[in-house]
Amino acid sequence: MTPAKEEINADDVAPGVMEAADHSIRDGIQGYLIGLALAIMLTVASFYIVHTPLIWGPGIPVALVVLAIAQIGVHLVFFLHITTAPDNTNNVLALAFGVLIVALVIGGSLWIMSHLNQNMLPMDQMTRMQR
């Protein structure tokens, strides 16, 4: 690592000019290590859970989705650095909007299509009617 990290006086810096990082390298690496450890744990749990008799069969997809959402949260916090800091408010709001749209698209599609499936004739009856 380069030892000479130039000190920039904050008052000398015009807005828009990069500021030197004021946190140590070790802190940065530590954050990523914690994130990696949590992500590995959740990933291993996901892969383990698929074939385990530990969980009631129909509950497995739910458990998988929960683990995936937890891991996405870990990635957001430790890798993408979404925080509650004031200069992050806009990012969090945009994320909330994105989550809303994703939930509407996926949840809505599944909901509507399952209802359509229920109201549909079985395929063999349908082809019989078309003759």
Partner: peptide, 18 residues
């Protein structure tokens, strides 16, 4: 706040609060 975050948003001018 806003410090200690090397990626998103942090590390810039911590006093730009919006």
């Amino acid at each position: 706040g806003g410090r200690g975050a090397p990626g998103h948003g942090g590390g810039g001018h911590g006093y730009a609060t919006g």
